[in-house]
């Protein structure tokens, strides 16, 4: 269970919500409304105020890297720090095992990142997050730039994680995806967040 209390930062008004184990919450709102700011604040990637805790343990009770290994944010445009895909994985075989689930050919692990399409890179970055098995996923536009087939594959894999008890908070412009995958919704408007119960 992720508890968020009075979370605020410049561009985001204080908000409270809980995210249960096995729950998926969609974050909806126009571009620039503060969806990314919210996800980044939960991951403690920018200076922010408020109490955020996971299963009763507050962020401050552990080093930030330990927090982010459990509550992992994936940016809409993930970065790469090496030429080859495999160099980004601590254990490439774990990533390779996930690739077919994301409709990625296993040999792609040996390719240079620069040769891949946006959609391919996006799914590889998701695989990179999933191999660490975080308890809470904070995904920024997880299906943008993906064709329908890949979107379905990503969705199925995320459902499986949720079914296993992980929690998901995802920002999206796709209302249909929000309804299909999200149990509840957070509506963001000019930095104000409203929890919408189904």
């Amino acid at each position: 269970m992720l508890n968020v209390r009075a979370l605020t930062r410049p561009g985001l008004e204080p908000l409270d919500f809980d995210l249960a184990d096995g729950e998926a919450l969609a974050v909806l709102g126009p571009s620039g409304s503060g969806k990314t700011l919210l996800l980044r604040a939960i991951a403690d990637l920018d200076p922010n105020e408020g109490q955020v805790s996971l299963d009763g343990a507050s962020r401050e009770s552990m080093p930030a890297p330990a927090w982010r290994r459990q509550v992992t944010y994936l940016p809409a445009e993930p970065g790469w720090w090496s030429d080859r895909v495999a160099d980004h994985f601590p254990q490439p075989e774990l990533g390779r095992a996930l690739f077919p689930r994301l409709m990625l050919p296993a040999p792609m692990m040996e390719r240079p990142v620069a040769e891949l399409s946006t959609g391919e890179r996006h799914r590889i970055a998701l695989a990179r997050v999933l191999v660490q098995a975080p308890k809470v996923l904070l995904l920024d536009e997880p299906t943008s730039g993906l064709d329908q087939g890949s979107t379905r594959a990503v969705e199925a894999l995320l459902r499986e994680r949720i079914g296993a008890g992980d929690s998901l908070l995802f920002a999206t412009h796709d209302e249909e995806l929000a309804t299909r995958l999200g149990d509840r919704q957070l509506r963001v408007r000019k930095g104000r967040v409203e929890v919408v119960e189904p």
């Binding site: 991951a43 990637l45 080093p63 890297p65 330990a66 927090w67 982010r68 290994r69 992992t72 944010y73 994936l74 940016p75 445009e77 993930p78 970065g79 790469w80 720090w81 970055a125 990179r128 997050v129 660490q132």
Partner: peptide, 15 residues
């Protein structure tokens, strides 16, 4: 220029 790479690493729990 390196910001996306550094932030992605930090988000994944690197020091």
């Amino acid at each position: 220029r390196e910001r996306p790479a550094i932030e992605t690493m930090l988000a994944l729990g690197e020091t």
